[in-house]
Amino acid sequence: MSLQIVTANRLDDGLVVFMTANHGWSDDIHQAVLAEDQAHADDLLARASTRDQDIVVVGPYLIEVEASEAGIVPTKYREVLRTKGPSVRQDLGYQAGQ
């Protein structure tokens, strides 16, 4: 079973965020809380999908990632793009400003 994290878009500005250990949200994927099994992942998703969270983020869902010394990297290309911004305009993702 691979590792999973919860991602969503922030309600007010729409930007990509990841759920952190205290069930808050960060735009830095390396701050994401890792779920090592499905039960943990389901629990995180449930916590991300409450009525309270619905006024913080939109559309939370689980993604698979790999974690190493270098940090957390999504396994699917789509999710890699979400952490980096459009491949054709890498000057523009909010990540570009970091």
């Binding site: 990509v16 619905d54 006024i55 559309g59 979400r82």
Partner: peptide, 26 residues
């Protein structure tokens, strides 16, 4: 934004005003 409307209720309203949520942003 105040939470009176849930995302499920708001989505069709924003869509009808041309607002999508895409990969990176609205």
């Amino acid at each position: 934004l105040s939470g009176e409307l849930t995302e499920d209720q708001f989505r069709p309203l924003r869509l009808m005003n041309g607002v999508y949520l895409q990969l990176h942003a609205y």
